[in-house]
Design a protein around this nucleic acid. Structure first.
Lengths: 143, 143
DNA sequence: TGCAGATACATAACCCCATTATGTATCGTG
DNA sequence: CACGATACATAATGGGGTTATGTATCTGCA
């Protein structure tokens, strides 16, 4: 099987757990880690267009996961903030996903498990190096 | 970063190369590897609904990537087949994706590259074990 | 000071991709 | 031969993304 296909299917296996889309969970995650952020900032981080982020935030707001606030000095700006419910869902998602992944890993023999464990941080690094020009994390410290 | 987010972003980095969606490229790949297949068969393999596959094939047909044929003894059935153009695109996609991945890998130091290389077959195995009940590959031999 | 352009976000119109519910042939069988 | 099962298509709906465009607001400069 092609590598890309493998990865896509792996993602498909784990992602549906939280019930959120890729962009939604990723955005929620970012809000959880880095605190309230501007629309444009979020759009760039998720690599979607600004109107796309406006729509995403609108949907997430409708589901009570995030909140728009206008408390900035710049009155054009919008600060997007995770709600209590959003943070809760984020925490549950992470836990459930970790469980699903763990179940998958448990099927492997110990040696293969070691191989995977070693590869994960490298994969992370790989992605971050591809995004070398971003991840501004302009706002609050990661709690 | 969360593992799942890492993987999703990795996929996002590599996928757009061919210009095809996830489902489309995966279906094209299957048709290329295993030859003409029935709609239902394809839907099950891609884990989407039968109407979803109908629509996908319709779009792919419109773009000249696949062809519907009714040459089966069962006149209800439809055989979906990759066109010449579809196979060409498939080949180009694979090549381009391999290039993109290679570029990413080249940024890593040799030791990390080894780690990744070792992990890939295990990842494949992981996904396949999760799908243990499927992959019928009922039709022709893989070329 | 005031206005021109840049900036931040929203809206509109469009496509892709998936879903469930339902329709329509065709097949197979009692 | 008619009834249920099967294979696919269609319709309606919704999430998710895009570009093009609108509307405030901000900023810098004559």
């Amino acid at each position: 099987m092609e590598l890309l296909v493998v990865l896509e299917q792996l993602v498909q296996l784990v992602r549906p757990v939280g019930g959120l889309s890729s962009a939604a969970s990723s955005t929620l995650s970012r809000l959880g880690r880095a605190g309230p952020q501007r629309m444009t900032e979020l759009a760039q981080a998720q690599r979607i267009s600004q109107p796309g982020m406006t729509q995403l935030v609108t949907r997430m707001e409708r589901e009570g996961l995030v909140r728009r606030t206008t408390s900035t000095s710049d009155r054009r700006g919008v600060l997007v903030e995770a709600t209590e419910a959003g943070l809760d869902l984020w925490a549950r998602m992470r836990a459930e996903r970790a469980d699903v992944l763990q179940e998958l890993l448990d099927r492997l023999d110990p040696q293969d498990q070691t191989t995977i464990s070693a590869a994960l941080p490298v994969l992370t690094q790989l992605v971050e190096s591809a995004y070398d020009d971003d991840q501004p994390t302009t706002s609050a410290t990661p709690r």
